[in-house]
């Protein structure tokens, strides 16, 4: 594991750029915006395709059903906001207008998790996965970095089902293998190992590559990027856990309703009971901080917490 400083890049920029590119080939791609155009890096799109950029103002519920109506008329609609508002304010509209009516709307939500540091609790969305995971017809994806964001956006733009894609505010480390392709329902083993499975979604998974503790140097960690939260890649996950017998799930989300819960359920249904630690926010609200690492430490989901979890799970 190297000490090199990772290259940082923006998942939001990756989204905006990819959509822009795809829209030039696919005239059916529409954006429904709620006054967060610049934040989701859609200014170019809006300029280039004014007729396919629909600005609804700060009105998430209205925008959501409008997106569903456009989709029912054959458009591939990207509904773009922050996760604190979409799927939070518009959840019942997502359930009825998008999911129950099975409309081709992609919900792209930035500023997820504690990574929205300075803004504080109302803008640190820690419940979005729980909200969308529970909805029939909805697929849920959480890219680990900008490279994977590009791949996920290209894939969902060509699918016909409702989907949720979780993005974040700051630039985050690049660590997804460029050569890998993204497939719905498929997880990637980013590093093979045999002692402990570390599994997570989103940029926080990068901390698994930053464990530089001497006493742990001999351990072989298997690191799995579980960006496809729904559908889950049960095959890859079960195979790894059977091999290691130890599982740590790490995520920038509430414990309740998060990926960890989905995995625990998967394991139980398959009669597996590995040693299991779930690193996630434990029934608390977020708070403001200038640096996200301070929050990760405070809520016990940072590198220190991961190091302790590794020590605990092998003891």
């Amino acid at each position: 594991m190297s000490n090199k400083k990772p290259t940082l890049s923006s998942t939001r920029q990756a989204f905006g750029d990819t959509l822009n590119l795809m829209a030039s080939k696919n005239k059916n791609i529409f954006v429904v915006s709620v006054d967060l155009k610049s934040s989701l890096k859609l200014s170019k799109f809006a300029k280039k395709y004014p007729n396919r950029f629909i600005e609804c103002g700060v009105a998430e519920q209205n925008a959501t059903a409008i997106a569903a109506g456009l989709a029912k008329s054959g458009k591939t609609v990207f509904l773009c906001s922050y996760s604190s508002f979409s799927p939070a304010i518009n959840w019942a509209v997502i359930k009825q207008s998008i999911c129950y009516n099975n409309c081709n709307v992609k919900i792209i939500s930035a500023h997820s998790g504690l990574l929205t540091s300075a803004y504080g609790a109302t803008h640190q969305m820690l419940e979005d996965i729980a909200l969308v995971r529970v909805l029939p017809n909805m697929e849920v994806f959480s890219p680990c970095d900008a490279i994977e964001t590009k791949k996920i956006i290209s894939v969902v733009a060509n699918s016909k089902t409702p989907a949720y894609v979780r993005l974040v505010r700051p630039d985050t480390p690049l660590f997804f293998d460029k050569k890998l392709s993204f497939t719905i329902g498929k997880s990637h083993v980013l590093k093979k190992g045999k002692d402990i499975t570390i599994l997570g979604h989103g940029p926080i998974l990068h901390s698994a590559f930053q464990i530089h503790n001497q006493s742990l140097a001999k351990l072989s960690l298997e690191i799995i990027n579980c960006s496809s939260i729904k559908p889950l890649d049960s095959k890859t996950i079960l195979k790894s856990v059977k091999k290691t017998g130890r599982l740590i799930v790490i995520e920038d989300h509430q414990k309740i309703g998060g990926l960890g819960e989905a995995i625990a359920h998967l394991l139980l249904e398959n009669n597996l009971s590995p040693k299991f630690i779930h690193l996630a926010v434990d029934n608390q609200f977020g708070q403001s901080a200038r640096h996200c690492q301070e929050l990760y430490d405070y809520y016990n989901i940072g590198i220190k917490a991961l190091t302790s979890a590794i020590k605990k799970i092998i003891s």
């Binding site: 604190s84 300075a118 504080g120 403001s288």
Partner: peptide, 27 residues
């Protein structure tokens, strides 16, 4: 303001003396 541990959160919070209501989500 908006430093870790400060009562002055990035969006208004009831933890500030005199403030009744935390908000951030509009409307």
């Amino acid at each position: 303001y908006n430093k870790m541990g400060s009562i002055l959160q990035g969006h208004v919070s009831k933890d500030v003396p005199g403030v009744l209501y935390s908000s951030g989500s509009l409307g």
